[in-house]
Design a protein around this nucleic acid. Sequence first.
DNA 1: TTGTACGCGTTATCAG
DNA 2: CTGATAACGCGTACAA
Lengths: 354, 354
Amino acid sequence: MNERIAQMPDGREITIYDIAKHLNISAATVSRGLQDNPVINKNTRKKIFEAASQLGYQSNNFASSLRSRQTHTIGVLVPRLNSYFMSAALAGMESVASNHGYNLIIAQSLEDAEKEKVNAATMFNKRVDGLLISLSYDTVNLHHLAPFYRRKIPVVFFDRVDLNQDNTCVVIDNFGAAYNITKHLIEQGFKRIMHLGGNLLRNVYRERLEGCRQALSDHGLPFFEQLHFTSTLSEDAGVEAAKFILGLKKTERPDAVFSSNDTAAVHCMLTLKAAGVKIPNDIAFAGFNNDPISKVIEPNLTTVNYSGEIMGSIAMTNLVNHLKGISDLSSTNSITLRAEIITRASSVGALVLK
Amino acid sequence: MNERIAQMPDGREITIYDIAKHLNISAATVSRGLQDNPVINKNTRKKIFEAASQLGYQSNNFASSLRSRQTHTIGVLVPRLNSYFMSAALAGMESVASNHGYNLIIAQSLEDAEKEKVNAATMFNKRVDGLLISLSYDTVNLHHLAPFYRRKIPVVFFDRVDLNQDNTCVVIDNFGAAYNITKHLIEQGFKRIMHLGGNLLRNVYRERLEGCRQALSDHGLPFFEQLHFTSTLSEDAGVEAAKFILGLKKTERPDAVFSSNDTAAVHCMLTLKAAGVKIPNDIAFAGFNNDPISKVIEPNLTTVNYSGEIMGSIAMTNLVNHLKGISDLSSTNSITLRAEIITRASSVGALVLK
DNA sequence: TTGTACGCGTTATCAG
DNA sequence: CTGATAACGCGTACAA
């Protein structure tokens, strides 16, 4: 391994021409040799690699991309980078991409549709080979992705997807998971169930709400519209939700809360606990995401577990397979990953007590 | 805003030549107009932008990079993507970069020096304009960064840095923070202080250990080598540390633990609590990072707060300023950011009780 | 198996 | 202020 980086006297970088000159062969041969093109004589190839390493050659990706129209770069556009789920998803994506020789360009929309639009344009201009996207909080249409479709650049949605079009999506069964976790609460004897939900523009929050409603209705229980608290599901939103609950007359308070994410659930719990509310005896809780905090809060939070890492790697694997011609995106419209209810102390015991 | 993406009849993309032909001017003028070059007539520029938008022109970054030798892309090389601190740091970096017209290529070393090396090479080949790096767990030298120095591509280290060379680093005062938090424990009356530490190859863990030692020695207390537990500071490591403590005779157990991160501290606490150990009465705790879980664990964890977001944005701002010629990296060798002790219930009360 | 010659889309240089 | 032309470094028909 040669640590020295050679350089031409005038400061230019080493090119295949320099290698060619060095070996008295043509640049075309060098180019082919470097690509392991089988038509090249084994011995020649060997000499090319030796010379390349000796001269400190580093291939120039732009020139290559310009010519081959492939960047080996994949754009990843997410709402926020700093959540446990998203960083796990990114980690999964990065591993798969890296294993297949692809790099990631990552940008965050900060939950802003306008920034998502700008980022999409940037990625398009950078000529990413494919795009992985999870929609921002308030994205209303997919016009900003039109350039990708137009040029047949594959786009894979994950988690926060758009199911109205025939897009390739990697998701979980949000409706089913919400249904089951609500059913679990009902089976524990809870009857006034509150829902902390997100923006209904996003499939994940819409379906979780619907799953909750359906479970209630299937069990002959009402959904209290006044107990449907919509927010961004942030820490602060959790605190606000708690204040809302504390502001209700005791008889109007929910006996259980199903939150569309763990962050809001946990910070709601903390605030309630500080106000003397007993969990789960006074109010039970269930969340969504199996965030690390759900195992730390006391009582531990019942939640829905699904792996960001797996979702990220599945999404990326699909994209890469498509790019390599191994599979076709159009053949797999939607991939639904496993999500499981994890029952913990925050949601049990009501039946026993009542 | 024109949503249609035009395309030449033969499938080629629109180029500046097409715009030039359309307006009966030269491609050079178009290029200059698009770059807002002041020498271009205002009216001409306007016509160029109109034609570009009308034809659905999208600039080709490769061609541009090939020619201008600038990619407007910054490489970010981190140990892992999925930690709270790191995702906050990335979010900070992304915001600043994006505001200055730069994109991020992000890769993770997964704490493996070899992968860090490969990633560095990839980024170099992608011709990133600059590199931001936080070292992997077991990186022992900086040979893999030599190509960057050779070509004068600016490198900025953050958090896990290498202070032995004259690198530009963005850090906190790990020694001081560890010193102060240990002092805090001592002032609460604790005398047998255990340290959960990381790999001493990394400045952050080495300095935290040293700060701890110094505080003990300054207060006439011994540092018990057998109570120096080195690990990766993962969740599992926290559990292992707890098992280690539980395996000690009661008289040999520490009365306080200072952990180099919150994750290990919290999972150590959880395991101890499950075994009936009272915190802080039996064993007090202090962590590092102010991870969200530190506010959820009971009792809340005393810790050191420093902002990943700020560290990321400062590091990126410095790099970008350098790239834009606003400042020189060599003039700022090391930037030390504020870190503060946050005292919470996990570490108080011992004096009162003893 | 190798070489020749050209094009990818942009920007820099030098004239005008 | 604008135009013509030559790079930038690589990949690939086509020819040998």
